[in-house]
């Protein structure tokens, strides 16, 4: 890789300022995704702005829920007492991701920003609209076993790879952002975007902005939760399909439910229609199967990933069954 320039910053303001002056620069925190991509030649920032010293490392309970700083490493979130007790879905999803070593490096902000694992995106000798707009989508008619069945376009059928984000999408989290024009926040489900005609953009973060943290509103999804991840080996692999399921039960009745899927779309895929259907229904496998059918509306496969049309609904049912206990 090119010998980029390197700057350490110790405040959010400095980080934003340095990036403003270096539009071809990039923030670096854990580095587990960025350095990987730089080694592959997928990206070549002229400057790395090391944000590891920023004071964004707190996990705190607030009046309305939980606040997690962008620079908290994944393993610290996973092991956090409050997270384990009150937001176990998040802990479970985190544990399903990557390896213990990577979870000790990767930060919450970096996890949110991580880019697709699409092999055509990774190989600079192959076409990829995300990496090189206009070069074509190698996956569309290529080896697309890992690829999207929801919300894809003819420009890009890549999927978002995170596990953590699936849980955060399910839990109605909010992303907190700082930028040259001040602070703003955005619902987690609106943070990542679908590829459309501009697959180069993974999310709605604006140029010059930095993720400061996420908040999760308080909820009662404590006992009846499950994060199901189906993959090609028992651990240390990306999801073929994953489901974050959270139920709040009143006796046998679904009082409240959250469902999101991973490995199926360019963003964490929230199953709002299925949630609506399930709310107020009695817990049963039949109901879950109906919910899965609703969730699968509009799904489209591309050949090698045809199996996801069967695996995804099966996973939804299984995750709900597991969550329901």
């Amino acid at each position: 890789m090119i010998n980029f320039e390197y700057t350490r910053v110790s405040s959010v303001k400095a980080a934003i300022d340095v990036l403003a002056k270096n539009p071809t620069g990039s923030f670096i925190a854990g580095g587990t995704n960025l350095i990987d991509l730089m080694k592959r030649g997928v990206t070549a920032p002229s400057r790395l702005i090391d944000i590891n010293n920023l004071p964004l490392k707190q996990i705190e309970e607030t009046k309305t829920g939980l606040s997690i700083g962008a620079l908290v490493i994944n393993s610290d979130v996973e092991e956090n007492d409050i997270v384990q007790k009150k937001y176990p879905l998040l802990a479970m999803a985190l544990k399903a991701g990557a390896s213990a070593q990577l979870r000790n490096m990767a930060t919450v902000g970096g996890n949110i920003m991580q880019r697709t694992r699409c092999t055509y995106f990774h190989d600079t000798a192959m076409p990829c609209n995300k990496r090189e707009p206009g070069s074509g989508c190698g996956a569309l008619q290529g080896y697309n076993r890992m690829h999207a069945i929801f919300g894809a376009s003819d420009k890009c059928i890549a999927v978002h790879p995170s596990d953590m984000c699936i849980a955060l999408a399910a839990l109605d989290a909010t992303v907190h952002i700082s930028g040259p024009k001040g602070e703003r926040k955005i619902l987690f489900t609106n943070f990542h975007r679908l590829p459309g005609d501009t697959p180069g953009k993974d999310n709605t973060l604006l140029k010059g902005e930095i993720i400061a943290g996420v908040t999760i509103p308080e909820n009662n999804f404590i006992k009846n939760i499950y994060y199901l991840k189906i993959r090609d080996r028992a651990s240390y692999a990306f999801a073929l399909v994953s489901v974050a399921a959270a139920l709040e039960l009143s006796g046998e009745t679904v009082k409240n439910v959250r469902l999101a899927m991973g490995g199926v779309a360019h963003k964490p895929w929230r199953l709002t229609e299925a949630e609506k259907f399930l709310t107020g229904k009695r817990v049963s496998k039949e109901t879950f199967i109906q919910a899965a059918e609703i969730a699968m509306k509009g799904a489209k496969a591309y050949g090698h990933n045809n199996f996801k049309l069967k695996m995804a609904p099966a996973a939804i049912v299984e995750a709900l069954m597991k969550a329901a206990g």
């Binding site: 390197y6 580095g31 350095i35 790395l48 090391d50 000790n104 490096m105």
Partner: peptide, 11 residues
């Protein structure tokens, strides 16, 4: 424990 291949020395 970390993977030293994905960390820069200067970090």
């Amino acid at each position: 424990r970390i993977n030293s291949c994905l960390s820069l020395a200067v970090m």
